[in-house]
Design a protein around this nucleic acid. Structure first.
Length: 289
DNA sequence: CACTTGACCTGTCCGC
DNA sequence: TGCGGACAGGTCAAGT
């Protein structure tokens, strides 16, 4: 899925596009797409307006005037795409794409009172949408166990390093991907910040020095802030709420660049292998085991 | 507890 | 052109 920068990009788009709009209708395909969409629950959806769009880790939270919240996880291939009046006029940023919605991967369709629509599309069907009272959101298991937001202004490198102590015997990459350690890191930004900090992904957490944690913290924040600025990273599935792709991949140093040269070593090829069960990219000179 | 692995799905790409 | 297998930006529930 979308990692923190992609989910944040979607959040910002939705905030601008759907805040204040009144939901008139909701439709979904299978039970799995919207597990608790029973009539007594959707009663808190129909007629409610969007108050606020929040994000925690990789989860989107759409607060409604009914004091209920739509909780949405995009997982690997989820998208939330808004289609408003632009669909009927020229010059929409991605007319050809937008005009195809809904399509065969549309899972949930929200229709607003003014005719605009929000489509939850998800090719692999791992994602989900739930509706629950806003006050209960902090009690769900994920919210209770998820780690701190890495981009918060008051989050320090010492706090960052401290979060890892519990995972001393696993690899640094596995620990970075563990949402209970730090929120929002996924496969792209794990590889990117490990390269930036010159740390091999298979190094055990217990072997990482304070200086290395400090570098990793700085690199993670730098890379995620840059990615947000660029609208996230796009493969063939990710687009934001306006149907646009992000451009971070134009700035990636190692991710999905196997066979290309390391930015620090013009004569060294980036290699790919498996670490923490995921495709992993490194510069074999910058990052040694 | 900490840690690893397989499962959940569909689509695409690559080698035979 | 077809087919099998690996792989894809993420969690979970199991197993050791």
């Amino acid at each position: 899925m979308p990692e923190l920068p992609e989910v944040e990009t979607v959040r910002r788009g939705l905030e601008k596009l759907i805040t204040g709009r009144v939901i008139k209708k909701v439709a979904h395909d299978t039970e799995k797409s919207f597990p608790n969409a029973t009539a007594d629950v959707t009663a808190f959806l129909i007629g409610a307006s969007v108050r606020k769009v929040r994000r925690r880790a990789k989860v989107l939270l759409i607060d409604l005037s009914s004091d209920y919240t739509l909780v949405i996880h995009l997982k690997m291939t989820g998208q939330l795409v808004f289609v408003g009046d632009e669909r009927f006029g020229a010059g929409h940023p991605n007319d050809s794409l937008i005009n195809e919605l809904p399509d065969k991967s549309t899972r949930v369709t929200f229709t607003f009172k003014d005719g605009a629509q929000l489509f939850f599309n998800d090719q692999r069907k791992f994602g989900w949408v739930r509706l629950m009272p806003t006050v209960e959101v902090p009690n769900i298991n994920f919210m209770q166990t998820v780690g701190p937001e890495p981009l918060e202004a008051d989050f320090t490198w010492q706090q960052f390093a401290e979060r890892f102590t519990r995972r001393a015997k696993t690899s640094i990459k596995a620990a970075l991907l563990d949402q209970t350690v730090i929120a929002g890191v996924g496969n792209i930004y794990a590889d990117e910040c490990l390269w930036g900090a010159k740390i091999h992904p298979k190094r055990l957490v217990g072997s990482i020095t304070k200086a290395e944690f400090k570098r990793l913290y700085t690199e993670l924040r730098t890379v995620m802030n840059l990615a947000i600025e660029k609208g996230g990273s796009s493969n063939h599935t990710y687009i934001n709420a306006e149907g646009k792709k992000g451009s971070y991949m134009d700035f990636a140093r190692v991710f999905r660049r196997e066979g290309l040269m390391c930015p620090r070593h013009p004569d060294v090829e980036i290699i790919k292998f498996k670490a923490a069960g995921r495709g992993t990219h490194i510069c074999p000179v910058c990052q040694v085991e």
